[in-house]
Design a protein around this nucleic acid. Structure first.
Lengths: 241, 241
DNA sequence: CGATGACTTGACTGAGTTCAAAAGCTGTGG
DNA sequence: CCACAGCTTTTGAACTCAGTCAAGTCATCG
């Protein structure tokens, strides 16, 4: 018993140091609920490309992202994949109240996550309405965001789509404390192929749009993934926002 | 007091006769919660084209659809509209826990709905966790469906998109008791223009796809909106499902 | 029955796809 | 440190499907 309590305290110290504590579900609930969550949490590192919600495994797992980016993927029967969303640090990944998730959650980058066994988490929601309310609000936000994503895919030109997705990712990866300056730099969490899978384009088209944006001095790239937005206003103009 | 109770009983008789009672949120909760809902409900008729969530009006309204179809619309600044979802009888329309809804909810057909004042409904959710749980489950379903819709928009050819949307609508409008036979008939809730707004196509393209499906004997149309699916398997094949 | 708006059909154009090949990173081992 | 293999990305050229513009046809309603 004493040993068990000790373990809990250890977890809670980790939690207090956690980068996403203040905005993640685990930190936005009552002290009591947070303690209960700490009791069942598993902190894990996951390599890029790994699947979070293994469908073969009967029991569902839910995760809170501490570090990295997760792709939500719809795999078509013909092998073509459509990325239907991205999840960023502090966000919740998983599908409560379903036998199995309809979409693959795949690590786009190396990940640090806090995971919970599905049934245990669902029980906790039932006992602690503040946790349930938090998940409800998150899901409502995810729904709004899914529809925003849809409108992105539905934009007319390839230029608008690519610029729009770059803006979306820049907004998510920019540290909250940074003022929205005219220059932003970050590492893209997605390959050209994945970019294309987000926007319903071919990778060649995405590459050409990147080239055009570079030629116009709106972005700079090097080492494949490193990206710098030089002209944020120009990017917004291309995205028609 | 007595008068008030009388009013409640009247409402509840209506509810007991209601077509969607068994599957709508108001019927899937405890007797006590259902009574509380009946106390604040307003049954309304709404004409096609009317907006349900008037943004000018400060207070949000939530609705349960009894009859008809609602479009969820993203209005771009350039006047172009993107339909990001459809809601059918028994489904919930509205955006709890937000100042104002980000998307227009517009009657696609004439409607019968049960409406609730936003704040009153949110209070009820707080007091009755079973209602909150029901709305959470519905929102999770809506999220899955939004992503399914996204995959529809993202299909390669116009033929796949049109066939896919026809299948989706057929599935929703088919009475639950009907066996999934090879022939289905119903009235389209959308104009060609709205079809195009769903699928990110032009109305001419939609029209041409309808013509092609008719020529192949897969569907029949008359009186513009009336539609009959003659070859369900063929339709599924075109939709690549 | 005629006016109005919704739908259909036709011809042409163009953005994005497709196929193909070259160039550029990245990591490994000699 | 360089050379090489294996990959991703870029660039090129031809093609194709949906978009655009325009002119019809058809329901529906007053």
């Amino acid at each position: 018993m004493r040993f068990n309590q000790g373990a809990i305290v250890t977890v809670r110290i980790k939690c207090l140091q956690c980068a996403v504590r203040l905005i993640a579900p685990c930190g936005a609930v009552s002290h009591e609920t947070a303690n209960e969550l700490a009791r069942i949490v598993h902190r894990r590192r996951i390599a890029a490309g790994q699947i979070l919600n293994n469908t073969a495994n009967q029991a569902q797992t839910f995760s809170i992202i501490v570090k990295g980016v997760v792709k939500i993927v719809d795999e078509h029967t013909d092998g073509h994949a459509q990325i239907v969303g991205l999840q960023f640090p502090s966000e919740f990944v998983g599908r409560p109240y379903a036998e199995s998730a309809r979409y693959l959650a795949e690590a786009a980058t190396d990940l640090e996550v806090c995971s919970f066994a599905g049934p245990a988490f669902e029980n906790l929601m039932r006992v602690h309405p503040d946790l349930e309310l938090n998940i409800l609000k998150r899901t409502l936000n995810d729904l709004d965001q899914a529809r925003q994503w849809m409108s992105l895919i539905a934009r007319k030109t390839a230029e608008e789509r690519v610029a729009g997705l770059l803006l979306f990712i820049a907004g998510k990866l920019q540290a909250d404390d940074a003022e929205p300056s005219n220059a932003v730099a970050f590492d893209l969490p997605l390959s050209r192929t994945e970019f294309a899978e987000c926007l319903n384009l071919r990778l060649e088209t995405v590459s050409r749009q990147f080239a055009a944006l570079k030629a116009e001095g709106i972005i700079k790239t090097n080492r494949r993934r490193a990206l710098q937005v030089c002209d944020l206003a120009g990017l917004k103009a291309r995205a028609q926002v």
